[in-house]
Computed example of a mutant assay.
Amino acid sequence: MSTGTATEVMSVTRHVDAAPEAVFAVLADPGSHAAIDGTGWVREPLDEGAITGAGQVFGMGMFHRNHPDGDYRMHNRVEVFDPPRTLAWQPGQYGPDGEIGFGGWTWRYDLEPDGDGTRVTLTYDWSAVPAFLREHISFPPFDEEHLTRSLDNLARLT
């Protein structure tokens, strides 16, 4: 396992004993995201079906004790869909105008063949979070251990 943190980007890399296609299939299934998540914030998918392409939006039920409502929803726009190599999305929320507003952070999984398995790098990038949002949310909202737990959970699922 290797880790790395730049100023506004955090990443962790781990070997997973499964082919890239199998790992990507788990990541492309929002139904598996709660089991992968290392914080316990991710709950259930709000939409049925797999992630199938860039531009797609998939919703997730969430919970965080510090969120004003406790339970809330995130709607993630897929930014990169390149099976079985890369999957990335940008979380957002619908506003009162019915439009999705994005917070400026992204989740990205990069997969590379690695012997009999896959080298998986999970990256959390908050470099595009605007100043007004940083006044209300401390970034990153978790430590690097969250990413490590997420990759450990992914390895167990595949």
Rank of each mutant, 00 (worst) to 15 (best):
W126F: 15
H75K: 04
T13K: 02
H33K: 04
A6H: 13
R108I: 06
Y72H: 05
G103V: 06
D125E: 02
A25F: 02
F102C: 09
V12H: 03
V129Y: 10
R73L: 13
D114V: 01
G53I: 07
G40R: 01
R134F: 13
R85I: 11
T39L: 11
A128C: 09
V57P: 07
H15A: 11
V78T: 09
G101L: 08
I137S: 08
T3D: 13
P30T: 02
N66L: 15
A131G: 11
T118L: 04
V120L: 01
I36T: 04
A6W: 13
G70S: 04
A6E: 15
R14T: 02
G55M: 09
G55T: 11
E99F: 11
E44V: 04
D97G: 08
G59Q: 10
G104C: 08
G104T: 07
P91K: 09
F132Q: 12
A25Q: 00
A22D: 14
G70R: 06
V23L: 03
T121F: 00
R134E: 13
D110A: 12
V9K: 12
A54M: 07
F58E: 05
P96C: 09
Y94K: 11
R119V: 00
Q93N: 14
D17W: 00
I100S: 06
D29T: 06
R43F: 12
R65D: 14
F63Q: 07
V42T: 14
G115I: 01
G31W: 10
H33P: 02
R77D: 06
D37C: 06
G92F: 03
Q90D: 13
V78I: 15
V23A: 05
P45T: 07
Q90M: 15
E99S: 13
A88K: 00
G4Y: 08
G49I: 03
P83R: 00
L111A: 06
H75S: 11
R77I: 11
G59F: 11
R14F: 00
R77S: 09
T52R: 13
W107V: 14
P113H: 05
D82Q: 12
P84D: 04
R108W: 08
A22Q: 13
W41R: 08
D71G: 07
E79T: 15
A6Q: 14
Q93C: 13
